[in-house]
Design a protein around this nucleic acid. Structure first.
Length: 614
DNA sequence: AAAAGGATGAAGCCCCGG
DNA sequence: CCGGGGCTTCATCCTTTT
C-alpha cells in the first residue's frame, strides 16, 4: 500500500528530550518514532485518493488560502503548470514582491502592520524607503519602535500581569534535575533560579542575558516570561545597533555570532508582535481557550461541515508547522502555546471521531483546512467493529461503544481476576453496585470482554491497530512489552493526523525525506533499520544542540524544511500525572519552548535565504 | 538487572437540580 | 447562580517478581 515515496517533501523532526532521561523519556521520544510511519501512511494513501477532483481549483484554493490573489494564482498556474507547486510558490512570491507598485502596496503595508508596527508609521516608512526595499523598511521600523518604547520595562509590567496564575505552582519545584544532560555536572542546582538559568542557557541565550532577565523579572517568573523578556531586550539592542546606520546583511557568512544575531533579530519582530497582540487583548477579556463540544476541531470526516479560517499573517509558512499536545492541559497552557505559535488558534480534536478510542488532543498548525480527506480504508469506529470477538462476552449493561484514551500503562492481571470474582457470584445481571465498580475499572483501564465474566487489557498489536499503525509496528526495535505500551501511549493517532496532513498531498513532487531525531537510542536505530524506513535519518542526541548553525547546515544540505512536526512531552500537563503536573514550565514539557526556538530559526533561515518576502 | 505490578489523586470540564 | 456529582486523563514512585 505504501508503494511510493513521492508525495510530500516533508521533514519531521523531534525535539523531544535529552538522551539521559532513561525510560521516561524514552517513551516520550518514541512518540515521534511512531509519528514517522504515520506520515508515510499519509503519503501512500494520498497517492491513492488524489485523482477525484480537479487539481487546479484545489491548487488555486491552496495558494489563495496563503494570501495570494486568485487572479495572480490562476495566472501563475497557467504559466507554470500545476505540477510543481514549489515553482508556483516561488513565482508567486516573486510577483508579490515585484508587482508592489499600486495594488500590492497595501499588502506590503499589511505585512508590516501584521508584525505589530503602527499603520501610519509603516505607511510613512514605506514611502520613504521605496517599496522594493523590504529590508531597509524593516530596519527603519525597528529603529522607530525602539525609540518609541523601552521594551524591557514594559515587558516587566506585562509579565506580572500575565503570569499571576502561574506563579504559585513553580516556586518550589526544585525537584530532581536529572533531565539536563551531560554538559553540566550531575549535581542538582541549588535553586529553582539556577534551574531556569540553566534552561535558558541551554536554549541558546547567553548567561548574561539569562541572569539579567532573571533579575528583572523576579524569581517567580516563568520560562515563558523570561524568554519574552530576553527577546525584548535583544530587540532593543538590535535596534540600538542600527542607530549608527550600519547595514545588516541578511545572512552574513562571516562569524557565527553575526548570523545568530540576525536570526534573533527577525525573531524579535515576531515576539514583539505577540506582545502587542497580548496587550490589545488584555482589556477585551480573559480569553480562556475553551474546548469545543463536540471536539471536532475544524472538522472531521464524519461531520461534513467545512470550516474556514484566516491565519494570522505571521503564521503563514513556509514552513508548515504542526504542534501537538494533550487537550486537557492545566489552565492557561494552551493560551501560552498559542501565543508562542503566532497566535494560531489550536484545533482540538478527539480521535474518537476517527477510530474506536478517544484521544483528546490539541493541534496548533498552519496547514490549510479546506479539502481535507480521510485515510482509507476507514478504521473501525466502535469497539465491536474493532474487536468482534468481544461481542459474545459483552454484557448488556456495559454501554461503552468507544474506548477511552490509550495510555502508557495497562492494568495488571490481578485486577481482571478481581473483577471476575466480583461477577462470578451472580448468574445473570449483577447488582448495580457491582456493575458500577466493574464499569469504573473498565473505563479506567480500557478493559474489554474476552470471556465469561472476564475482562482483559488490550494487546500491543490491538493498540497499534486502534492508533492506525500496522500490526507489530512497535515490535521492530525488539523492545519489551511494557515499552511497547509506553511508546504507543505517547503516539499520534494516525488517521487523525493523516486527515490534517492530507492537504499536503498536492504540495510538491518527491524530494528527499529527512527525519531528525533528537535522541539517538539503540532502540530507535534498530527500529529504523528493521522496519525499512525510507528517507534519511539524522540523529541529534540533544535537541539543544540543534542551534541556528546546525539548522542552517541541514537546510543547505536538504534544501529546506517544508514541515516542522512535533509534540513536546506531556507528562507535566496530563491529568494522569500525580506528582509533577507543573504545566508548561515543568522540566520536560518546557521543551515546548525549544520547539518554538527551532521553528523560529527554521522560519528565519528559510525566509532569509528566499529574499525577505513572505 | 530488567520487567511487571500496585498504590497513589487532582484538575478541570460538563451537567443537572435546587 | 451555584454547588455537587460524574467523568476523563500521551503518569510516577516504589515494591515485587522474573
Amino acid at each position: 500500500m505504501v508503494g511510493n515515496i513521492s508525495g510530500v517533501d516533508a521533514d519531521n523532526f523531534d525535539w523531544d528530550t535529552e538522551d539521559d532521561l532513561e525510560i521516561d523519556n524514552y517513551a516520550v521520544s518514541s512518540h515521534s518514532d511512531l509519528s514517522i510511519p504515520c506520515r508515510e501512511a499519509v503519503l501512500g494513501l494520498e497517492e491513492a485518493s488524489s485523482s477525484g477532483e480537479s487539481p487546479s481549483s484545489k491548487l488555486i484554493d491552496q495558494f489563495v488560502g496563503m494570501g495570494f490573489s486568485r487572479e495572480m494564482v490562476t495566472k501563475v498556474i497557467e504559466e507554470k503548470g500545476e505540477e510543481n507547486s514549489n515553482l508556483i510558490l516561488e513565482t508567486l512570491l516573486e510577483y508579490s514582491a515585484s508587482t508592489l507598485p499600486s495594488s500590492s502596496n497595501s499588502k506590503m503595508i499589511n505585512h508590516f502592520v501584521g508584525m505589530g508596527f503602527p499603520e501610519e508609521i509603516v505607511v510613512k516608512v514605506v514611502q520613504e524607503n521605496g517599496e522594493g526595499n523590504t529590508e531597509s523598511i524593516l530596519e527603519t521600523l525597528l529603529t522607530y519602535s525602539a525609540l518609541e518604547t523601552t521594551a524591557p520595562i514594559q515587558q516587566n509590567a506585562d509579565s506580572d500581569n500575565f503570569s499571576s496564575d502561574y506563579q504559585g505552582s513553580f516556586l518550589d519545584d526544585f525537584s530532581d534535575f536529572d533531565s539536563f544532560s551531560d554538559t553540566e555536572e550531575v549535581m542538582s542546582p541549588a535553586s529553582d533560579e539556577e534551574r531556569k538559568l540553566l534552561h535558558l542557557t541551554k536554549m541558546g541565550y547567553s548567561e548574561a542575558e539569562a541572569s539579567v532577565a532573571m533579575e528583572r523579572c523576579g524569581p517567580d517568573s516563568t520560562i515563558a516570561e523570561l524568554t519574552d523578556f530576553i527577546c525584548a531586550a535583544q530587540m532593543a539592542k538590535a535596534a540600538d545597533a542600527l542607530f549608527p546606520l550600519e547595514e545588516k546583511k541578511p545572512c552574513g557568512n562571516d562569524s557565527n555570532h553575526k548570523k545568530r544575531r540576525n536570526w534573533d533579530y527577525d525573531l524579535l519582530i515576531r515576539k514583539r508582535k505577540k506582545k502587542m497582540k497580548l496587550e490589545k487583548r488584555f482589556d477585551e477579556d480573559d480569553e480562556a481557550v475553551h474546548l469545543p463540544n463536540p471536539m471536532i476541531g475544524f472538522g472531521v470526516p464524519t461531520e461534513s461541515e467545512q470550516s474556514t479560517r484566516v491565519l494570522p499573517e505571521a503564521a503563514v509558512g513556509p514552513p508548515y508547522f504542526y504542534y501537538e499536545n494533550v487537550a486537557l492541559a492545566p489552565k492557561g497552557v494552551w493560551t501560552t502555546i498559542s501565543r508562542f505559535l503566532y497566535d494560531v488558534e489550536p484545533e482540538f480534536v478527539d480521535s474518537k471521531f476517527f477510530c474506536a478510542s478517544a484521544r483528546k488532543r490539541g493541534y496548533v498548525h498552519n496547514l490549510p483546512i479546506e479539502n481535507r480527506y480521510p485515510l482509507l480504508p476507514f478504521p473501525p469506529r466502535t469497539i465491536h467493529e474493532a474487536f468482534p470477538l468481544t461481542r459474545k462476552w459483552w454484557p448488556s449493561w456495559d454501554m461503552r461503544t468507544k474506548l477511552n484514551c490509550l495510555q502508557t500503562c495497562i492494568s495488571s492481571a490481578r485486577l481482571t481476576d478481581k473483577i471476575r470474582k466480583a461477577l462470578e457470584d451472580y448468574d445473570g445481571v449483577p447488582p448495580l453496585g457491582v456493575q458500577k465498580y466493574v464499569l469504573e475499572q473498565c473505563r479506567k483501564w480500557n478493559l474489554v470482554w474476552v470471556g465469561r465474566n472476564k475482562v482483559a487489557p488490550l494487546e500491543p498489536d490491538e493498540v497499534e491497530m486502534l492508533l492506525g499503525f500496522p500490526k507489530n509496528h512497535t515490535r521492530g526495535g525488539g523492545i519489551s512489552r511494557t515499552d511497547r505500551y509506553k511508546s504507543l501511549g505517547n503516539s499520534f493517532q494516525v488517521d487523525t493526523v493523516a486527515y490534517h496532513f492530507s492537504v499536503l498531498k498536492d504540495k510538491s513532487p518527491a524530494v528527499s525525506i529527512c527525519y531528525l531525531f533528537s535522541q539517538g537510542s539503540e532502540v530507535r536505530r534498530s527500529w529504523w533499520e528493521q522496519t525499512n524506513q525510507r528517507g534519511t535519518l539524522v540523529e541529534i542526541p540533544d535537541v539543544q544542540d540543534l542551534n541556528g548553525d546546525r539548522l542552517e547546515q541541514l537546510i543547505k544540505t536538504y534544501g529546506g524544511f517544508d514541515l516542522v512536526v512535533g509534540g513536546s512531552p506531556c507528562n507535566n500537563l496530563t491529568g494522569s500525572n500525580r506528582y509533577h503536573r507543573d504545566g508548561l514550565e515543568g522540566k520536560d514539557s518546557a521543551l515546548f519552548f525549544d520547539y518554538c526556538r527551532i521553528l523560529d530559526l527554521v522560519k528565519c533561515i528559510m525566509n532569509g535565504t528566499r529574499s525577505m518576502t513572505v
